[in-house]
Design a protein around this nucleic acid. Structure first.
Lengths: 335, 335
DNA sequence: GTGAAAGCGCTAACAT
DNA sequence: ATGTTAGCGCTTTCAC
């Protein structure tokens, strides 16, 4: 198998200098058609694959965008990543994904790792980071786009929604509809800052109406339909007088819906349900779940475009430092 | 902001040679505690982030594993990726994800891109690649793990299941239960080779019993619950005498289930349903869907471990070139 | 249109 | 325990 062919090998076989070969393979500079052909043939013949490590070092730039999200095993972030991927597809930039597992320490490590690849920009979820991570990001001197959450101060630029607002909106709808005994169902609340903010917004809006949560149940693991179902059962046994449940995510709410469907409860008469996210999945269900729609794909798309824009025009005026996207909260069939 | 600090800056500030600084920061070689301290302090002070591009070039090795899957917006691959991530978490290796969109041309481009980063190994879904991609992979001289599908010849090593077998198993169960008018519902069939193989296996087993599909419906887009629902409606209107439906994925089958639930059809008496994958989601549903369970996380885990093993022992005897994992097909409530 | 020289930031190998 | 030398494979810069 020998050693992997290098640019030198290609150049020799083509009978030109390394420089010329490099120009041909990158498609830059003026090279005659004849030499172009020779080089390309030589490269093909050798099965040459350029070494971007070397190229990146020499040019002091690699076309990477680091993307860090809390989880991919989740129905939310894959869509954000798809948006990012799509936006970058036609550019030179390439996304590199990292996962923090909803753990700020791990996020810090991942940020460090990513930065060591000298990316052109970083997209990461949330406004909360360790102090060290915050410093690294500030010092990196590249565009930093914090996505999903816009309740707080971004390091550089922020694209997302107000989760506090989402919570408030849903609380307003719920109170307007006359529900009074409200329960909350959440998972991973201590780790998911955005879910916490929704709950805060929700509670504060209830307080405005001289109300408060009647009962709450939490579980420290990732959301799933099954878990939502179990938690709903537990909560309703414990507090049979609840007339409305607000879930930290659609996945849990769908679990609640499934429980109601099988146990013959009438929705929303016996119990009203509301989730959060506006997952595609909801479109297939027999009952339209009340939820807050979040433009997940759009967030990814815009974040990537922001990086591209900054690359074009590095001293862009940061007027739209904060891009707060619209959310819509709907009652559907379950409120 | 100035320029990013380099190892040289750190070394100077600490009053040692670059080499010593390098050793300290990588945690290799013998360095006295005092100098260690000095270097670390200097690095922290400068906010030094190592440049792995340079490091990789110098050491001629980067700790990357390239992972290429057809999609991440999908309930299957995120779990595989999680398995890979988890397996590599304690190692030096780091996964880099790429997406091919079920397109072999795009896969070829992604493979090329990935190879240019000089990864330690490649994990990719499926045994089908363009000729050029095949050549590149063979020439790369690193472990290549083809996952998910084991019906065919791997380039190097293969970890997955037999989709043909999965189709056959389900057909056997269905015929044994006495169903005779069987319909098939699939999406992305021309692109998803594994779904095709399941269908082939399914049909061949039917043929063994002198049967054949009564009707089939296809749609050329990604699977979703809503789509499964719509297709089920269309198919059953067209062929009202069907007594069993086999879907190319659980997501579609759940859509079918939802349709039956809302239209008052009795399962499996009026109509039997079967999916494929064994998604976690199924655990939360009111009715347990017949499906074939695929160890997705396990596949990811093993693939990553195979790369690690090969790194330890490069001339490992390739006895277990082909790791066929167990699948279990269950009738549950819907068959 | 093409080439030669220099060096990107780091580490392997060999001193000491 | 620490330093020196050389060079990874490529691109920048400048010369022709």
């Amino acid at each position: 198998m020998g050693q992997k062919p290098t640019l030198k090998n290609v150049a020799q076989l083509a009978g030109v200098s390394e420089m010329t070969a490099s120009r041909v393979l990158r498609g830059v500079g003026d090279v005659s058609d004849r030499t172009k052909e020779k080089v390309k043939t030589a490269a093909r013949e050798l099965g040459y694959v350029p070494n971007r490590i070397a190229g990146g070092l020499a040019s002091r730039s690699v076309n990477l965008v680091a993307v860090i999200v809390p989880s991919i095993r989740n129905y939310v972030f894959p869509e954000v990543l798809t948006g990012i991927s799509d936006a970058l597809a036609e550019s030179e930039l390439q996304p590199v994904f990292g996962v923090s597992n909803y753990d700020l320490e791990q996020e810090e490590r991942v940020i460090n790792d990513m930065l060591s690849w000298q990316p052109q920009g970083i997209i990461l979820a949330g406004l909360h980071h360790t102090e060290a991570a915050q410093k690294m990001l500030e010092a990196a001197n590249i565009p930093i786009i914090e996505i999903m959450d816009c309740d707080g101060d971004p390091i550089d630029m922020c694209i997302g929604i107000s989760h506090r607002q989402a919570g408030q909106d849903m609380a307003r709808l719920i109170t307007e509809r006359g529900y009074r005994k409200i329960g909350f169902v959440g998972t991973q609340m201590p780790l998911d800052f955005r879910a916490q903010k929704r709950l805060e917004g929700f509670k504060s809006e209830l307080a405005q109406n001289d109300m408060q949560l009647s009962d709450e149940i939490y579980y420290d693991a990732r959301s799933s339909i099954a878990k939502g179902r179990d938690m709903t059962v537990t909560l309703m046994e414990r507090s049979p007088d609840l007339d409305c449940l607000y879930y930290s995510s659609d996945l849990l709410a769908v679990g609640g819906l499934m429980h109601c469907m099988t146990s013959g409860l009438s929705i929303p008469d016996d119990i009203a349900l509301a989730g959060f996210n506006g997952l595609d999945m909801l479109d297939g269900l027999p009952t339209r779940l009340a939820t807050t729609h979040v433009p997940r794909y759009e967030i990814g798309l815009r974040a990537a475009k922001a990086i591209l824009a900054r690359k074009e025009n590095p001293d862009m005026p940061l007027k739209d430092k904060m891009q707060l996207l619209d959310i819509s909260t709907e009652m559907a069939d379950t409120l």
